[in-house]
Simulated assay, not measured.
Amino acid sequence: MNDDISTARKSRKITKNEASGMIERVSRVRKQTENLFAKQGILSAADKADLDRKLDNVANQLCR
């Protein structure tokens, strides 16, 4: 997703601040995923759905 954000930024579809915010949100989701997996050894369906929703929000913002 970071590549998509970078491409959108280069094509000036989003601002530098928007791109930075999106990259930060994706990084947080990635870190949350790593932490949950390290703690639980598996991602529950609820956790996965929550993380997917967060990534979908970023993707939807990108598609505007």
Rank of each mutant, 00 (worst) to 15 (best):
K10M: 12
D52V: 09
A8W: 01
V58F: 04
A8N: 10
S20M: 11
E18V: 05
D4W: 00
R30I: 11
M1Q: 01
Q61C: 00
D47Q: 15
K54E: 12
L51W: 15
M22F: 05
A19E: 08
D4H: 04
D4N: 10
S20C: 00
Q61L: 03
L51K: 13
D47H: 04
L51Q: 13
K13S: 09
A59W: 02
M22R: 12
E18P: 12
A45D: 13
S6Q: 14
K13Y: 07
A49F: 05
L43S: 14
E24F: 08
D4T: 11
A49K: 15
R12C: 05
I42V: 09
K48G: 04
Q61A: 08
S20P: 00
R28M: 13
N35S: 12
E34P: 00
E18T: 12
I42S: 04
S44P: 08
I14Y: 02
D50M: 07
I23Q: 03
L43W: 13
D47M: 01
A19K: 07
S6K: 14
K16G: 01
L51C: 11
Q40I: 00
N57L: 09
I23D: 06
Q40A: 08
R53I: 01
R25C: 04
V29F: 15
D56N: 10
C63D: 04
D52A: 11
K48Q: 09
A46T: 11
C63P: 00
A19N: 03
N2K: 15
A45N: 08
S20V: 02
D52Q: 14
R53F: 10
K54M: 09
A59P: 01
I42L: 02
I14P: 01
A19V: 11
L43C: 10
A45R: 10
L51T: 01
D56E: 09
E18G: 05
K10H: 07
G41L: 06
L36T: 04
N60G: 14
V58K: 02
D47F: 03
K31A: 13
K39A: 15
S6T: 14
R28K: 14
A38P: 01
R64W: 06
Q61I: 02
F37C: 02
S20I: 13
N2C: 02
